[in-house]
């Protein structure tokens, strides 16, 4: 069994009196394709906010590559190798698509020399089939290209772990089929991927292992074929 890349131990996050996460633990292995699912409001986005550093969990521990990152600010976690895309795309609106990628390349990617930033950004855009939109402002992109930009920008941080937060929400099934191979290809290059997704077809096909959250707690974890048969999961999604 491969070593854990990301270790989440008993993480609890409260908003006022509301427990958004209650003692959640996860292990994601190096090179794995990991799925995270759950009904709306189950705490998926809160959990990845805690992992990426946008939120601080009150108790519990998060380790990445063996170091405790629980108290690190988000930008330092990104430099260690955790990158994420946002569910609602948050591009840098005054910059071109190319310049959007230059920010993480300049600030987060450790092994990219300053002179190579633009070449590297173009290479990522080519991989995402965005190269002909490099000089556009994000406001002029289509929905699917906006999702691509969101993933491309996360890739530009040169992560070891990529967290894709509902990158396919609102896309047609043809568009989903176009995005999935890109994620598979990234994984083959050795990048560990956590996929948060509502589109079951995509997440089941993509993931090697899936964890299910419901009301802030992990109710199941295992390979996709076991998750499909799990009674608790069925209850969480369909109600009693």
């Amino acid at each position: 069994m491969a070593a854990s890349l990301l270790e989440v131990r008993d993480v609890t996050k409260r908003f006022g009196g509301f427990r958004a996460l209650n003692g959640v633990s996860l292990d994601v292995r190096e090179g794995e394709r990991f799925g995270l699912i759950g009904p709306n409001g189950s705490g998926k986005t809160t959990l990845i906010n805690c992992i990426s550093g946008a939120l601080r969990n009150e108790s519990g521990r998060i380790s990445f590559r063996g170091c405790d990152v629980t108290r690190l600010p988000a930008h330092q976690r990104t430099r260690l190798g955790i990158a994420r895309s946002f569910q609602i795309p948050k591009p840098f609106t005054s910059m071109t698509v190319l310049e959007n990628l230059c920010i993480p390349l300049e600030y987060a990617a450790r092994d990219v020399a300053r002179a190579d930033v633009v070449d590297e950004a173009m290479a990522i855009l080519r991989r995402m089939s965005l190269e002909d939109k490099a000089s556009l402002l994000p406001g002029r992109l289509t929905q699917v290209d906006m999702r691509r930009l969101e993933l491309a920008r996360a890739m530009a941080a040169k992560p070891r772990l990529l967290i894709s937060d509902e990158a396919m929400a609102g896309l047609s099934s043809a568009e989903v089929d176009a995005l999935l191979p890109i994620l598979f290809a990234l994984n083959e290059q050795g990048i560990t991927i956590i996929m948060i997704e509502h589109i079951m077809r995509a997440v089941m096909r993509f993931s090697e292992r899936i964890a299910v959250l419901d009301a802030g707690e992990k109710i199941a974890e295992g390979p996709p074929d076991e998750i499909v048969k799990n009674k608790d999961v069925e209850r969480a999604y369909l109600g009693e």
Binding site: Q76, T78, S94, M95, C102, I103, E106, A109
Partner: peptide, 23 residues
């Protein structure tokens, strides 16, 4: 690089922080 980081903050501070900018 300072100015590009500041522009990223102006555009979207949360995204800037997540892209490695020490906001």
């Amino acid at each position: 690089w300072v100015g590009r980081g500041l522009a990223a903050i102006r555009d979207n501070e949360e995204a800037a922080e997540c892209m490695g900018v020490p906001t």
